[in-house]
Design a protein around this nucleic acid. Sequence first.
DNA 1: GTTAGGGTT
Length: 700
Amino acid sequence: MSRFWRPGSEKPSASLVDDEEGGVLLLPTNTNSSSSSGFGYASLERQRQRLPVYKYRKAILYLVERHATTIVVGETGSGKSTQIPQYLKEAGWAEGGRLIGCTQPRRLAVQTVASRVAEEVGVKLGEEVGYTIRFEDQTNPGMTMIKFLTDGVLIREMMEDPLLTKYSVIMIDEAHERSISTDILLGLLKKIQRRRPELRLIISSATIEARSMSTFFSIRRKNSLPESADDLPNPEPAILSVEGRGYTVETHYVEEPVSDYLLAAVSTVLIIHEKEPPGDILVFLTGQDDIDAALKLLNDEIQHLRKHYFDLVILPLYSGLPRGDQDLIFAPTPKGKRKVVISTNIAETSLTLEGVVYVVDSGFSKQKCYNPISDIESLVVAPISKASARQRAGRAGRVRPGKCFRLYTEEYYLNEMQADGIPEMQRSNLVSCIIQLKALGIDNILGFDWPASPSPEAMIRALEILFSLGILDEDAKLTVPIGFQVAEMPLDPMISKMILSANDFGCSDEILTIAAFLSVQSVWVSMRGVKKEFDEAKLRFAAAEGDHVTFLNIYKGFHQSGKSSQWCYKNFLNHQALKKVIEIRAQLVRVMKRFGIPLKSCDRDMQAVRKAIIAGSFANSCHLEEYGQNGMYKTIRTSQEVYIHPSSVLFRVNPKWVVYQSLVSTDKHYMRNVIAIEPSWLTEAAPHFYQYRTPNPAPH
DNA sequence: GTTAGGGTT
C-alpha cells in the first residue's frame, strides 16, 4: 500500500520514496530540521539574508510591535512579500493559534509567494504556510500560521468574521496599485482597528504615495485614551523605506514630442537592435490593435532591411492571447537571437519576463473610465502616471543594468505627468462595491471613510440601481431575503438577481449555467486571422434568441465532448475559460443549496429563460432605430446610442427589442451578450421601473 | 457596417 504524507503525520523521510504503484514519488523537499544539514537549506537561508529587507528585520519588528499601522515602502525585489510574514512568525505573532495574513491583488502572486515561503520555512504548503484563493483553499485550520490570500477573499472572510479575529497581523501587499478590493479592504481595516486596537496592519507599497496612506491611517484620538493603556500600540502610522534589488536603468527621452508612438516604438526597436549589445526588448503599447499594427510594421520594415534583422524574434503579449502563444513569451531566447515582446500593461505588474534589458515605453495605456450620469464604463487610451513609468522602466533592470527609452520628453515627464494614477474606485461602477459594504453592516455609504472617495454621483447611481433591482429598500438597507442573498453571491448583482428570479420561471438549472458564462471574460478564442472559420464555428452554437441561449448550447457540447480540449480547439473555444465556467457553476450550485433553492430545468422553454434574464437586466433594454444608422439601437432608459458587439451572435441580425448584459465602449458603445425580447416582458418584469422611468416605453 | 488595459469574489 502506498503511504501518503498526510497532514498531521510524520514528515516524510528519504525512505518514504515509493513508486511501487507507478508514480507516487515523494522526495523530501527542503526540511527545516536541524539534523538535515542539507545544502539546499543552507543556501536558502543565505539567499534570505542577501535580500535588502533583511537589514531592516529588527526595525520592522520593532515598528510593528509599537505601531498599529506600519507602512513599508519598497521596490520590487526587496523581498518584503516573502520575508516580512516569516519575520513576524519568528517573532511570535502566530502563537496561540493566531494568524498572520498577507494579501495580494492577484491569484497567481498568492500561489507563488506562498509556495516560495513554504519552501524557505521548510514545510509542506498548506500546513504552517498556506494560501486561499477562490476555488482553492490550501490552509489547515489549527495548523496554518502564515496565510496568503487575495484581497477579495479577505473581504469575503469578513462576512463570516467582521473583525477578522483570527488574525494578529494583516499585511496588504501592492497597496499602491489601488485596486477596488484593496481600497475597500483599507477602509474596512481602518474601521476594525478602532474596535481591535491590538490588530497590527502592514501596508506595503511601491511608491511614496505612502504619505497619503499614512494620513489615511492616522487616528486622531480626541477623547484620547488614558496613558495607562500603554500595552496598546501607537495609533500614528510608522513609515519605513526599503531599497529594491533591481539594477540601475538608464533612462532616455525623446527630444521632441512624437506624433505617432507606434512608428516611434518601431523605429526605437530597430535602433536598439542595431546599436545595443544583446538583451531582450519589451515594448509597452496600449491594446491588441496597437500591438498587431506594430508587429506588422516591424515585420514590414525588416523585409526591407539587411539580413541581420532576421535575428529578431517578435512576439505579441496581451491577456486575450491563446495559452500556447503566451508560452512562447517565456521560452528562452534562441542563441544569437534577440526577443522583442510587444505588450499591454499586463507586463507591467502581472507577468515578469526574465531577460529583458531594454524597455520602450509609449507613455500610454488603456484605462477604465466611468460616467455615473450615463452609467457607462469605457476604456480609453490615456497617459500613464509617473509611478507606472517607473514601474515599466524597472522591468529593464531585473538581470543586469538596462535601458529605458521613453517616447515622451523629459520636460513632459517632469512637469506634466501625474505622480500617481487615479484609484480604480474613482473610475468604476460601484454596484458590487456598495453591496459588499452593505453586507458588512456599513449603512452610511456617503459617510464611509474611503481611502479615495468616489463621487457622490457615482454612489447615488449605484444606490439607485440596487434599489430598482429590489436589493435595497427605501432606507437603502438590504432587503430580506433577496438583498442578503445577492450580497452573498460572488457575482455582479444583476446576475445574482437573475439567478434568484429563475426560481419563479422554473429554469434555475439553465440560468446557473448562463450566470457562470457571464462571469468569465470570453469563452471564444480571439483569432483575427481566420475569421471565416471562426464565424462558422460560432454558427454551430448560435441560438436565434441570443448569446445567453448560445451559452447553453456550448455548455451542452462541452459536456458531450467529455470536456475535451481538442473539441475546444476545433470550435475556437477557450478551454481554460470553459473549465472556469464549470468551476463557477459548481460554486453557485453550492450557494443555491445553502439558500434552499432547488435546481430546476425548463427543458426547451427558452421564453422562461429569457424572462429570468430580464428580471436582472431589465434596465438594459434597447430598441432598434429603424430609420437611423444601420444597426443603431437606443437605450430605453437614457436614449443612448448603442450597437450590438461584433462578437454577439445577434450582430447583423438586429432584432427589434433587445436586452444586453454589459456595455463595452470604445469608439461606439457596444452591447455585449445580447438577447432578443418582447417589449411586454419588460413591464411585466419591472412595472415600477418602467412606469416612473419612461412615460411610454412600450409601443403596445 | 466589424471588436476586448489589467485584476477579483
